[in-house]
Nucleic acid binder design. Structure first.
Lengths: 342, 342
DNA sequence: CTGTTAGCGCTTTCAT
DNA sequence: ATGAAAGCGCTAACAG
């Protein structure tokens, strides 16, 4: 299987009696090259089977036109939507996206940051892992002036912009909704409170309880991994409680449906005995019975805005820093799992 | 925001009174460099804030240590598992993975192939899009001797290895299972029959029917996109049929649960009126009620095997071609949605 | 509008 | 176990 020799711009230049520079410019659609020459160059390139060498280009120009993205896990329709939004904006600005998963591990995340750094990404967008601590793993980027932006699961950093949803309000709305349905003893199944998303939702949950003169009991907040197993385990823990709750707010639909299914298996009636509300508006929330009430928010838009902010910065149009952060709106979707009142 | 000057191996070499060659080797853990020198080199590199320049390396060595992966869509636990398997093997062999989605579009797939090609991937693994036609879009790779491997949704190509599951047997098992439960009028909701996975399952479905002396009716095969909407639409179409089916075999769990939910909404009893079996063993199949019978198969293993085959080829240990293709085993998981017999 | 020159940072011979 | 020299293919800077 002999590799054919690679065609370079020099080969094209020679064939056309031009300089390599002109060929390079012609291929790049540079304004200073005549239409006619451009056409000759492009035609010859195609004919000779030329392929652009990104490495030589990147080496020389010290730019990669590549943006890195690190997400915790590619397992929700929300993440798909965010990435789709990012990809759209990046493509339009002719940037490439490199996506990698931390799989919820701070350790793997740190490795990914290094890999992105070594791959010379022009900028990086991160939604941090479940157990990430501190921000020092990102220092290498900041030091080299590589713009860093957080989305959804954000960290506080003066030099970074964050794009998030209003988690406080979301938590408040979800809890208030359960209270309106008559719930007086509401569980909040959440994640690591070091993460802004969970901490803010917890605060919103507490605000709503206090506003309704309901007690905030520490034992009513379950800190979990918010995955399927956490849903099943939480159901077991709920059934063990002295007084059964009458409402459950789960920070993730997938976890919520598993919890619901386990409870129903044990004879619990939903929403009559326990009302449920999830988070994410995942497609599963519409398929499960009873259909799951949830919080919806604009993932695609979040991706678009994040990518747009970063690219604006790269083009020198605006700066990445904490004062440019954005909070997107979310909304309550009430379905059968929470409608105690007929 | 001034960029600090990049540290190169020459800077390290100078500081240590060594040659760049030695530094390069030391960083790469080359056997011909003494332990002591290696330690000095690595320490100094860290201290000086050196970062490896992939582009210079790739440019010079003409290898990228990168494997490309193109998948239709990152929307199932099956795909996650496959990618995790690939990543594990790739990482162990110190290869990077670039993953991109065709979003079920042949057009985008062709673009992705070109991008991968221009990014000089050492090899490519592809699960083709829903509507891909022909194999010519992959010619550029074959011509340059870049190994190409298909997994799950495969194309026939003498120079490519395929890693697939036994779709014929899976279709047969699923259908036979419904027949054993007493079904006599079974619908098969499938996808584009130009795709091996769906064509083979359809053949298995037909084999099982014939074996049981049941008629194979063309109108009982629904060609759909196998997504959520297809499930909902199929439910509507089923309800319009002159004689309602008593069994439905869907080639995708996600589509199946949406179809089931829609039918249940219309008062259909599952499995009593219509028994159901899906495909993929997606987590959703365990949460939905009734729990969905399905076909399980080893996604993680598929990823591992695919990556392993490709890397073996890159190391010159075995060849990529159609004679090395592998068919993995799948298994039936019977749950409540198909158990008519008590 | 086109060309000349130089060099990005690394690895690969081939020597020693 | 270490080094010298050359060059991968491109583009920035300057020249005309």
């Amino acid at each position: 299987m002999q590799q054919k020799k690679e065609v370079t711009i020099y080969d094209i230049a020679e064939k056309l009696k031009l300089s390599a520079t002109t060929v390079s410019r012609g291929l790049k659609d540079h304004p200073a090259i005549s239409k006619k020459t451009k056409k000759r160059i492009n035609d010859t390139a195609a004919e000779m089977g030329y392929r652009f060498n990104t490495f030589a280009s990147n080496l020389r120009s010290k730019r990669t036109n590549t943006i890195g993205v690190i997400i915790p896990k590619m397992n929700s329709s929300f993440m798909s939507a965010v990435l789709a939004g990012m990809e759209k904006v990046a493509n339009e600005a002719s940037y490439n996206l490199i996506i990698s998963q931390s799989l919820e591990s701070a350790e793997k995340e740190a490795v990914n940051v290094k890999t992105m750094f070594n791959n010379r990404v022009d900028g990086l967008m991160v939604s941090v892992a479940y157990d990430t601590v501190g921000v020092s793993q990102f220092d290498i980027l900041i030091e080299k002036g590589i713009p860093l932006l957080f989305f959804d699961r954000a960290l506080d950093h003066p030099q970074c912009t964050s794009i998030v949803i209003d988690n406080h309000k979301s938590g408040y709305l979800a809890t208030q909704h359960l209270i309106e349905q008559g719930c007086k003893n509401i569980i909040h199944i959440t994640g690591n409170l070091a993460r802004n998303v969970y901490a803010d939702r917890q605060k919103g949950y507490e605000s709503a309880l206090r506003e309704a003169n309901l007690k905030v009991k520490p034992e009513n907040t379950f800190i979990t991994a918010l995955d399927e197993q956490a849903g099943i385990d939480s159901a077991r823990n709920i059934l063990k409680m002295k007084s059964l709750p009458d409402g459950v707010f789960v920070d993730n639909d997938n976890c919520a449906v598993n919890c619901m299914a386990s409870l129903i298996n044990e004879g619990v009636k939903i929403p009559e005995d326990i009302a449920f509300i999830g988070f994410n508006n995942d497609p599963i929330s519409r398929v499960i019975r009873p259909t799951l009430s949830t919080i919806n928010y604009p993932g695609f838009e979040m991706g678009e805005i994040a990518a747009h902010k970063l690219i604006s910065h790269l083009n020198g149009q605006q700066s990445i820093n904490s004062t440019n952060s954005i909070i997107l709106r979310s909304e309550l979707i009430a379905r059968d799992s929470s409608k105690k009142i007929k």
